[in-house]
Protein backbone atom coordinates (compact mmCIF):
# COMPACT_ATOMS: atom_id res chain seq x y z
CA UNK A 1 0.00 0.00 0.00
CA UNK A 2 1.19 3.46 -0.84
CA UNK A 3 1.41 5.88 2.07
CA UNK A 4 -0.63 9.03 1.64
CA UNK A 5 1.09 12.30 2.50
CA UNK A 6 -1.27 15.22 2.88
CA UNK A 7 -1.23 18.46 4.85
CA UNK A 8 2.30 17.77 6.09
CA UNK A 9 1.38 14.45 7.65
CA UNK A 10 0.83 10.82 6.86
CA UNK A 11 -2.91 10.57 6.33
CA UNK A 12 -5.50 7.81 6.09
CA UNK A 13 -6.63 7.32 2.53
CA UNK A 14 -10.41 7.06 2.30
CA UNK A 15 -10.40 6.81 -1.49
CA UNK A 16 -10.36 3.64 -3.54
CA UNK A 17 -9.30 3.59 -7.15
CA UNK A 18 -11.54 1.62 -9.48
CA UNK A 19 -9.43 -0.83 -11.41
CA UNK A 20 -10.72 -2.68 -14.41
CA UNK A 21 -10.07 -6.39 -14.28
CA UNK A 22 -9.23 -8.33 -17.40
CA UNK A 23 -12.24 -8.39 -19.70
CA UNK A 24 -14.10 -5.60 -17.91
CA UNK A 25 -15.03 -2.57 -19.96
CA UNK A 26 -15.60 1.03 -18.84
CA UNK A 27 -19.15 0.72 -20.11
CA UNK A 28 -20.05 -2.41 -18.11
CA UNK A 29 -17.84 -2.40 -15.01
CA UNK A 30 -19.77 -2.46 -11.72
CA UNK A 31 -19.43 0.83 -9.86
CA UNK A 32 -18.59 0.15 -6.20
CA UNK A 33 -19.81 2.11 -3.17
CA UNK A 34 -17.63 4.62 -1.29
CA UNK A 35 -15.22 7.35 -2.30
CA UNK A 36 -14.08 6.22 -5.68
CA UNK A 37 -11.36 7.50 -8.02
CA UNK A 38 -12.57 6.66 -11.52
CA UNK A 39 -10.28 6.08 -14.47
CA UNK A 40 -10.78 8.62 -17.23
CA UNK A 41 -12.33 6.04 -19.59
CA UNK A 42 -15.00 5.11 -17.00
CA UNK A 43 -15.73 8.78 -16.36
CA UNK A 44 -16.15 9.35 -20.09
CA UNK A 45 -18.44 6.35 -20.53
CA UNK A 46 -20.55 6.75 -17.38
CA UNK A 47 -20.43 10.43 -16.55
CA UNK A 48 -24.20 10.93 -16.00
CA UNK A 49 -24.51 7.82 -13.89
CA UNK A 50 -21.51 8.72 -11.74
CA UNK A 51 -22.76 12.26 -11.15
CA UNK A 52 -26.20 11.03 -10.08
CA UNK A 53 -24.91 8.23 -7.81
CA UNK A 54 -21.90 9.80 -6.06
CA UNK A 55 -21.61 12.88 -3.89
CA UNK A 56 -17.83 12.73 -3.86
CA UNK A 57 -16.06 11.93 -7.10
CA UNK A 58 -12.41 11.29 -7.85
CA UNK A 59 -10.71 11.05 -11.25
CA UNK A 60 -7.54 9.29 -12.34
CA UNK A 61 -5.63 10.59 -15.34
CA UNK A 62 -2.82 8.76 -17.08
CA UNK A 63 -0.02 10.89 -18.53
CA UNK A 64 -1.31 10.54 -22.09
CA UNK A 65 -4.85 11.60 -21.16
CA UNK A 66 -4.98 15.33 -21.84
CA UNK A 67 -6.29 17.59 -19.10
CA UNK A 68 -8.06 19.63 -21.77
CA UNK A 69 -10.63 16.83 -22.01
CA UNK A 70 -11.78 17.24 -18.42
CA UNK A 71 -11.37 20.99 -18.14
CA UNK A 72 -15.13 21.59 -18.16
CA UNK A 73 -15.76 18.79 -15.64
CA UNK A 74 -13.36 19.93 -12.93
CA UNK A 75 -16.08 21.19 -10.59
CA UNK A 76 -17.31 17.62 -10.15
CA UNK A 77 -14.05 16.34 -8.67
CA UNK A 78 -12.94 16.30 -5.06
CA UNK A 79 -9.72 14.55 -6.07
CA UNK A 80 -7.83 14.42 -9.32
CA UNK A 81 -5.07 11.81 -9.25
CA UNK A 82 -2.28 12.02 -11.83
CA UNK A 83 -0.40 8.80 -12.39
CA UNK A 84 3.38 8.48 -12.70
CA UNK A 85 3.83 5.05 -14.32
CA UNK A 86 7.57 5.57 -13.79
CA UNK A 87 9.06 8.46 -11.85
CA UNK A 88 11.11 9.47 -14.90
CA UNK A 89 7.91 10.01 -16.90
CA UNK A 90 7.48 13.76 -16.40
CA UNK A 91 4.27 14.40 -18.31
CA UNK A 92 2.12 14.70 -15.19
CA UNK A 93 4.14 17.77 -14.13
CA UNK A 94 2.72 19.56 -17.17
CA UNK A 95 -0.75 18.16 -16.52
CA UNK A 96 -0.61 19.46 -12.95
CA UNK A 97 0.64 22.89 -14.04
CA UNK A 98 -2.18 23.19 -16.55
CA UNK A 99 -4.88 22.00 -14.15
CA UNK A 100 -3.87 24.55 -11.55
CA UNK A 101 -2.70 27.49 -13.60
CA UNK A 102 -4.84 27.38 -16.72
CA UNK A 103 -8.00 25.62 -15.54
CA UNK A 104 -7.85 26.84 -11.95
CA UNK A 105 -8.64 23.47 -10.42
CA UNK A 106 -9.02 23.98 -6.65
CA UNK A 107 -9.58 20.43 -5.35
CA UNK A 108 -7.05 17.87 -4.15
CA UNK A 109 -4.36 17.07 -6.72
CA UNK A 110 -2.75 13.78 -5.92
CA UNK A 111 0.42 12.20 -7.28
CA UNK A 112 0.04 8.42 -7.58
CA UNK A 113 2.16 5.62 -8.99
CA UNK A 114 5.95 5.71 -8.82
CA UNK A 115 6.01 8.57 -6.32
CA UNK A 116 9.38 8.94 -4.58
CA UNK A 117 11.09 11.21 -2.06
CA UNK A 118 13.33 13.01 -4.51
CA UNK A 119 10.55 14.28 -6.74
CA UNK A 120 8.29 15.66 -4.01
CA UNK A 121 9.82 19.13 -4.18
CA UNK A 122 9.04 19.42 -7.90
CA UNK A 123 5.56 17.95 -7.46
CA UNK A 124 4.69 20.44 -4.78
CA UNK A 125 5.85 23.30 -6.99
CA UNK A 126 3.66 22.37 -9.94
CA UNK A 127 0.59 22.14 -7.72
CA UNK A 128 0.22 18.69 -6.19
CA UNK A 129 -1.00 18.75 -2.60
CA UNK A 130 -1.19 15.07 -1.80
CA UNK A 131 1.26 12.31 -2.55
CA UNK A 132 0.80 8.55 -2.52
CA UNK A 133 4.39 7.75 -1.60
CA UNK A 134 5.49 4.39 -2.96
CA UNK A 135 5.18 1.43 -0.64
CA UNK A 136 8.29 0.69 1.41
CA UNK A 137 9.66 4.24 1.29
CA UNK A 138 10.32 6.29 4.39
CA UNK A 139 7.34 8.64 4.74
CA UNK A 140 8.63 10.26 7.91
CA UNK A 141 11.89 11.27 6.24
CA UNK A 142 10.02 12.35 3.11
CA UNK A 143 7.97 14.73 5.26
CA UNK A 144 11.06 15.96 7.04
CA UNK A 145 13.29 16.56 4.00
CA UNK A 146 11.52 15.89 0.70
CA UNK A 147 9.61 19.14 0.39
CA UNK A 148 12.33 21.49 1.56
CA UNK A 149 15.27 20.57 -0.70
CA UNK A 150 15.48 24.18 -1.86
CA UNK A 151 14.37 27.27 0.01
CA UNK A 152 13.55 29.34 -3.05
CA UNK A 153 13.19 29.07 -6.82
CA UNK A 154 13.93 31.12 -9.89
CA UNK A 155 10.93 30.27 -12.04
CA UNK A 156 7.23 30.81 -11.89
CA UNK A 157 5.19 27.78 -10.93
CA UNK A 158 1.85 26.96 -9.36
CA UNK A 159 3.24 27.49 -5.86
CA UNK A 160 4.98 30.73 -6.77
CA UNK A 161 3.33 32.84 -9.45
CA UNK A 162 6.11 35.44 -9.54
CA UNK A 163 9.60 34.66 -10.82
CA UNK A 164 12.44 35.50 -8.47
CA UNK A 165 13.45 38.50 -10.55
CA UNK A 166 10.09 40.14 -9.84
CA UNK A 167 10.41 39.47 -6.12
CA UNK A 168 13.74 41.24 -5.65
CA UNK A 169 13.69 43.97 -3.07
Amino acid sequence: MAQLIKNNAVAVDTWKTLELAEGETPEAVALPEGDIIFPFAVWQARKAEIISRYKRIGLLLQPDEPVEEIAVDLDYFIVVALNFPKFVDGRAYSSASLLRQRYHYQGELRAVGDVLHDQLFFMQRVGFDSYALKDGKNAVYALEAGFSSFSDSYQTSTSQAQPHFRRRA
Partner: peptide
Protein backbone atom coordinates in the same frame (compact mmCIF):
# COMPACT_ATOMS: atom_id res chain seq x y z
CA UNK B 1 17.83 25.40 -13.04
CA UNK B 2 15.49 23.05 -11.14
CA UNK B 3 12.57 23.93 -13.41
CA UNK B 4 9.89 21.82 -11.73
CA UNK B 5 7.93 21.02 -14.87
CA UNK B 6 10.87 20.03 -17.04
CA UNK B 7 13.11 17.91 -14.82
CA UNK B 8 11.97 14.64 -16.42
Amino acid sequence: TFHPEFAF
